[in-house]
Design a protein around this nucleic acid. Sequence first.
DNA 1: TTACCTTTGCTAACATCGTTAGGTAAAACT
DNA 2: AGTTTTACCTAACGATGTTAGCAAAGGTAA
Lengths: 199, 199
Amino acid sequence: MGILERKIRQKENMRTNILAVALQLVKEEGWQSLSIRKIADAIEYSVPVIYDHFENKEAILFELSMDGFRLLDRLLEKDKRKYDDPEERLRAHAETYWNFAFKNPEYYQLMYGLGMPCSSPGKAKPEFNSFREHIAEAIEGIVKDNKSSEDETCFKIYAFWSVLHGLISIVMMRCSDIDDSQMNKKVMDDSVNAFIKNL
Amino acid sequence: MGILERKIRQKENMRTNILAVALQLVKEEGWQSLSIRKIADAIEYSVPVIYDHFENKEAILFELSMDGFRLLDRLLEKDKRKYDDPEERLRAHAETYWNFAFKNPEYYQLMYGLGMPCSSPGKAKPEFNSFREHIAEAIEGIVKDNKSSEDETCFKIYAFWSVLHGLISIVMMRCSDIDDSQMNKKVMDDSVNAFIKNL
DNA sequence: TTACCTTTGCTAACATCGTTAGGTAAAACT
DNA sequence: AGTTTTACCTAACGATGTTAGCAAAGGTAA
């Protein structure tokens, strides 16, 4: 229906349009039911034009996940500018990560492969470790007075990330029987507190 | 008399055969490439007979995940019989959970939805919370002398589970840059130690 | 103008998927 | 015997990701 009308409304960057539409569809119906044909329908072009801009469906998901990493990274950078004290900054990072996950569950699931195509096990994502690097900086700042070995510090970084990611996963997949999101956040806060106290 | 029983047995055999073959295929080629037709091929029957035993593909995956939960549960029960001291038992549970995940990654991924079809988001699986209940028992045993509130205890249970699940996820998805599985396990041990010390 | 060539977008197909309708022939029952 | 029930199959439907091949449009050069 839209093919003729479309020619009047001009194109503008088709690539970003495809991504925007794909994200929209994912938000509406979940990434599981995202299909090339639906995207084509939504941008009012035929199917093959999508393959002029993306190698395949996985490339679209990949690009979307990169957008997610970039968005998260921007938020973490803001924390960094706001807080000088490493402990405060670490707390802020945790909060930011948590909020990001629940305000953008589609992104989070795509980024960390929580219930989707096996697109995520991507080694070639540099942004992948952005969060780890941010908390690493903060943790090293807290810990630098102690005489922690390099390994110990590295371990702590993963441990911290794990608590957050694990809790988010469990809550997101409704494994938790705690319905109250306030409560869930409190579990997170408690864990962060215990972690910091133990540094 | 025996005829009817034989028929039931045969039907049961077919069902378990389908599940066994499905699991085998999953181990060989991963979740993403499991298909009804491949299963039919492997059991040397035509496609529709599978639908005589399972409502749909998701039901097969669901049943497989239940097998996973049952297997894990058996291992945790063994821990329970072996260790009376709640702290020792909690450590054993953590080790068991960790080993289960890496010895049966297909099961773990299916059970906790780590990179697959969105089949997992808990559909009234009673076995789903088996692990939580086991560690709950141990943690309550450790904590019962303290004057911890019920909420606090509940939080700690989720926190403990989160560390484990989060770390397993991160390692399984290769987000971690630690290659050495010994090292990864040490992160887990450290986290468990820190957690128990803080109880 | 005419002849070419590149771009742009389409239709139509291929192979695979989950799923189901409908048929056949043997087995079981009466 | 005749009737029903079981066991199983072929063939299809609709949806998927992906690609081959064509047609028109626009620019360039003679």
